Amino acid sequence: MEGLKLSDAELMIYIHPSKSRNVFKAICRELSALLFQYNETFDGVLLAYDATVKSKQAKILAGLHPYFGVRVNTRLLLFDPKPNSLVEGEIVKVSPESIHCIVLGFSAAVVTDVDIREEFKYKVRDGEGCFVSRSHKRHALKVGTMLRLQVQSFDEEVMHIAGSLLPENTGCAKWLEKHSEEASSHMDRDNKRRKIA
């Protein structure tokens, strides 16, 4: 999935003197407070981190609250989907006007009917709404399906993705993978036939 990136960073974390007994725990608490929020410094949403203290020396800051700064080497997993990148999420709601899904368990994504390609038609099967491809009847988008969609925009404040299903490489992720494997195996067979001939 696009939009995920690993980043190495050297950070200065400021800790209150009352937390000096267990500095590493205080560092983890400070970093954990940044999880699942968009951070301009990191240019993305922090999903996970791995921190190691670089030095045992700390810099004491002068002022009313004498915090001390600790240098920390971190490895960060960030989520920052750019426009036209592909992301995957589980469909949670399907209606004639839109498809709603959850990406990575925390970010909401919606695809409106104007961004769903003509190939898909809304139908009701077994009392549930779904979009079914007119050319491939097994290519269906229903609740519980992993949907691959193209990002149009990402609102960092509310963690909301506006998506599109207009490109051909979007739709049910499982069906797309199976279809691409079948296409590559057909190409391999055709190449072998040409070599034999």
Rank of each mutant, 00 (worst) to 15 (best):
Glu30His: 05
Ser180Asp: 00
Ala173Val: 07
Tyr49Leu: 04
Ala58Asp: 13
Pro96Ile: 08
Leu149His: 03
Leu46Trp: 06
Tyr38Gly: 04
Asp43Gln: 13
Gly44Gln: 02
Ile60Trp: 04
Lys5Met: 15
Thr74Gln: 02
Leu76Ile: 06
Ile91Pro: 05
Lys195Thr: 08
Ile116Phe: 11
Asp115Val: 02
Lys142His: 06
Arg75Lys: 05
Gly163Asp: 02
Asn84Ala: 10
Gly3His: 03
Gln150Ser: 00
Val72Asn: 01
Val110Lys: 10
Lys93Tyr: 07
Phe154Trp: 06
Lys59Gln: 00
Ser98Asn: 02
Arg134Asp: 05
Leu64Pro: 08
Arg71Asn: 15
Val151Asn: 03
Ser20Met: 11
Cys101Val: 08
Ala48Phe: 15
Val94Ser: 09
Ser107Trp: 05
Leu46Ile: 04
Tyr49Cys: 05
Ser32Asn: 00
Asp50Ala: 07
Cys130Glu: 04
Lys54Pro: 12
Asp80His: 15
Arg138Phe: 07
Cys172Met: 07
Ala109Thr: 02
Leu77Met: 03
Glu181Ile: 13
Arg148Val: 10
Leu176Cys: 01
Ser153Asn: 06
Cys172Val: 02
Pro96Ser: 00
Ser18Glu: 15
Lys56His: 15
Asp8Ile: 13
Pro83Ala: 01
Lys19Thr: 01
Arg148Leu: 11
Ile99Arg: 11
Asn73Pro: 02
Tyr122Leu: 00
Val92Asp: 05
Ile15Phe: 13
Arg148Thr: 02
Glu88Trp: 15
Ile102Ser: 10
Val114Ser: 14
Lys25Glu: 08
Lys59Leu: 07
Trp175Ile: 01
Leu86Thr: 09
Gln37Leu: 13
Asn22Tyr: 07
Ile161Phe: 04
His186Asn: 14
Gln150Thr: 14
Ile161Cys: 07
Lys192Met: 14
Ala173Leu: 11
Gly171Gln: 02
Val111Trp: 04
Leu147Lys: 03
Lys19Pro: 10
Arg29Ile: 06
Asp80Phe: 12
Glu157Gln: 09
Asp80Trp: 03
Val45Gln: 11
Phe154Ser: 15
Leu64Lys: 14
Gly69Ser: 12
Glu177Met: 12
Asn169Arg: 03
Gly163Lys: 02
Phe24Thr: 11
Glu157Asn: 14
Val87Gln: 06
Gly44Asn: 00
Leu165Val: 03
Lys123Ile: 00
Ala48Asp: 06
Glu156Gly: 08
His136Pro: 14
Arg134Lys: 08
Lys195Trp: 15
Glu119Lys: 06
Ala140Asp: 09
Ile102Gln: 12
Leu31Glu: 03
Ser180Arg: 11
Leu78Gln: 00
Gly171Trp: 13
His160Glu: 12
Ser7Phe: 13
Lys5Tyr: 08
Asp155Arg: 02
Arg29Thr: 12
Gly163Gln: 10
Ala33Met: 13
